[in-house]
Simulated assay, not measured.
Amino acid sequence: MWYRKGRIVEAYSDGSRNSGRGAGSKVNQCPYCNHTTVRKDHMSKHIRTHTGEKPFVCTHCPHRSATKYALNKHIRIHTGEKPYNCSLCPYRASQKSALQCHLLKHKT
Rank of each mutant, 00 (worst) to 15 (best):
Cys61Gly: 01
Ser65Tyr: 02
Ala66Asn: 02
Tyr69Leu: 09
Leu88Thr: 06
Thr49Glu: 10
Ser19Tyr: 08
Asn18Tyr: 05
Cys33Glu: 14
Thr36Arg: 06
His74Trp: 07
Thr37Ile: 09
Pro90Trp: 09
Ile75Asp: 00
Tyr69Met: 05
His78Trp: 09
Cys58Leu: 00
His78Asn: 06
Gly52Gln: 08
Leu88Pro: 01
Lys107Trp: 03
Phe56Ala: 01
Leu99Glu: 06
Val38Asp: 03
Lys68Cys: 07
Asp14Cys: 15
Lys54His: 04
Asn34Asp: 10
Ser13His: 10
Tyr3Met: 12
Pro83Glu: 03
Cys86Ile: 07
Leu88Met: 12
Thr108Pro: 03
His35Ala: 14
Tyr91Val: 00
Thr36Lys: 04
Arg76Pro: 15
Thr59Phe: 01
Thr36Phe: 01
Cys86Asp: 04
His35Arg: 11
Arg17Glu: 13
Thr59Val: 08
His106Gly: 04
His60Thr: 05
Asp14Asn: 15
Pro90Glu: 06
Ala23Gln: 05
Lys82Ile: 12
Lys40Ser: 12
Pro83Trp: 02
Asn85Phe: 08
Arg76Phe: 14
Arg76Trp: 11
Thr51Lys: 15
Gly6Pro: 13
Thr79Phe: 11
Thr59Glu: 01
Gly22Ser: 00
Arg64Leu: 01
Ile47Gly: 13
Leu99Trp: 08
Asp14Lys: 12
Ala93Tyr: 04
Gly52Met: 10
Asn85Ser: 12
Gly24Phe: 00
Gln29Pro: 01
Thr36Asn: 05
Asn18Gly: 08
Ala98Pro: 02
Ser13Val: 15
Tyr12Lys: 07
Ala70Gly: 14
Cys101Trp: 04
Asn85Met: 09
Leu71His: 07
Ser97Arg: 10
Lys82Arg: 15
Tyr91Pro: 04
Tyr91Arg: 03
Arg48Ser: 13
Gln95Cys: 07
Ala23Asp: 05
Gly22Trp: 00
Ile75Trp: 01
Glu81Leu: 14
Gly20Ala: 02
Arg64Val: 05
Lys107Ser: 11
Met1Gln: 03
Glu53His: 09
Arg48Asp: 13
Ile75Asn: 00
Arg76Met: 12
Asp41Met: 11
His60Phe: 06
Gln29Thr: 11
Thr37Lys: 05
Ile8Cys: 11
Lys107Asn: 09
Cys61Pro: 03
Tyr91Leu: 04
Thr37Ser: 11
Asn34Pro: 03
Leu104Arg: 12
Val38Glu: 04
Ser16Lys: 04
Asn28Thr: 06
Gly24Trp: 00
His63Ile: 00
Arg76Ser: 14
Glu10Ser: 15
Val38Pro: 00
Tyr91Lys: 03
Met43Gln: 11
Leu103Pro: 09
His46Gly: 09
Lys68His: 03
Lys54Asn: 05
Tyr3Lys: 14
Lys73Val: 10
Asn28Arg: 05
Arg64His: 02
Ser97Thr: 04
Thr67Trp: 02
Arg7His: 13
Gln95Arg: 15
Cys101Ala: 09
Gly15Met: 08
Asn34Glu: 11
Ile8Thr: 13
His50Ile: 12
Lys26Met: 08
Cys58Asp: 00
Cys89Arg: 05
Ser44Arg: 07
Leu71Gly: 12
Met43Val: 15
Thr36Cys: 06
His50Gly: 08
Thr79Asn: 02
Asn72Lys: 04
Ser94His: 10
Lys73Cys: 13
